[in-house]
């Protein structure tokens, strides 16, 4: 063992170096001061660059959002998660009465509003709802486009004929399509929570974000945070300190028929749940099948283990 000894200091030295490396790396995760001399690999848009630069210098906020979203209890979370049918219907109402004036829902067909696991409307109700929309169809035999009432196979029509029209009407910012919004936004939870989330099945970052954003308006920007004209301060916005969308909800703006509270908070919860459904319409089916598959696999694995034990019982290994 004598020739081991000269290598031990080398091992210690390497260990110390690696500990330093990890301290640097993880230190950066918690201490924004580390991230001052940034040489970002990507090139954000000029607006984002301006916002980020000012934020970092004046305020020492390296990463958006400024505040993390509140974690809410959702009926669709967890192994036995199910959509709350009444909540989805209220969320659809909020979308139709408020969001739909600017935001499209292009991947959602009216027909999917019927059936189990989701909003649960009857086919007659879906037909009636679709017919309330005017859909541009055609061209007809004369070569002309024409308007006709919607049918269940149509998708929600866009409020604007094209992205350019949407941009002009909204001060240059195109309101994004909302179909996938609940899966397209997630505030980073940091390395530790990311690992814990694997075991707790946290998959509700999207609806939590939507709720936080919709309820996050109306706060005074902290001193030093510059809010450009035509934008609105919101500490939950994922990309900068303020966004072009004005506060869309206000208490009493939508009249519920089921007696639910007519508050911004309730509207935000309902529309966030609805948008989770538009992003993941087969969620309930997925979780139900997953439970069945899981039970099967666990029983199967148990039987395989016993078989394996039996087969190997006479062979030392």
């Amino acid at each position: 063992m004598r020739n081991l000894s000269p290598t031990l200091p080398a091992i210690r030295f390497l260990r110390a170096g690696l500990v330093a490396a990890f301290a640097f790396g993880f230190g950066s995760a918690f201490n924004p001061a580390f991230s001052q001399d940034s040489e970002a690999a990507s090139e954000p848009t000029p607006a984002e660059v301006a916002a980020v630069d000012e934020e970092q210098e004046v305020h020492d906020v390296a990463h958006f959002p400024i505040d993390k979203p509140e974690l809410l209890n959702w009926s669709f979370a967890g192994v036995f998660g199910r959509y709350d049918q009444a909540q989805l219907q209220r969320g659809l109402q909020v979308y139709r009465e408020i969001c739909s004036s600017c935001h499209s829902l292009q991947y959602v067909a009216f027909r999917t509003l019927a059936g189990h696991g989701g909003l649960g409307y009857s086919e007659e109700q879906v037909k009636a709802l679709a017919a309330e929309y005017q859909i541009t169809a055609g061209p007809n035999d004369d070569g002309d486009m024409y308007e006709r009432p919607g049918i269940p196979s149509d998708h929600f029509p866009s409020p604007f004929p094209n992205p350019q029209a949407a941009a002009v009407a909204n001060g240059g910012a195109v309101p994004p399509d909302l179909s996938l919004m609940a899966k397209a936004r997630a505030v980073s939870r940091g390395p530790v929570w990311t690992i814990i989330d694997f075991f707790t099945q946290y998959q509700e970052a999207g609806p939590n974000y939507i709720h936080a954003l919709l309820t996050g308006y109306g706060q005074e920007p902290p001193p030093g945070v510059d809010v450009p004209e035509g934008t609105h301060y919101n500490p939950y916005f994922i990309a900068s300190a303020s966004l072009a969308m004005p506060p869309p909800l206000s208490d009493g703006a939508v009249t519920y028929s089921d007696g639910s509270p007519e508050t911004v908070d309730q509207y935000a919860r309902d529309v966030a749940a609805f948008l989770m459904w538009t992003a993941e319409p087969h969620l309930v089916e997925r979780k139900r099948l997953g439970f069945q598959v899981g039970i099967f696999l666990i029983v199967f694995a148990g039987l395989m283990y016993l078989t394996k034990k039996r087969v190997w019982s006479k062979e030392p290994h």
């Binding site: 690696l18 490396a21 790396g25 580390f34 040489e39 970002a40």
Partner: peptide, 17 residues
């Protein structure tokens, strides 16, 4: 993580290792 500050230093040490 973003390629900035302490992350870059740590990346260099670990890459070398």
């Amino acid at each position: 993580q973003p390629a900035e500050g302490g992350y870059v230093i740590a990346s260099r040490i670990l890459t070398a290792y």
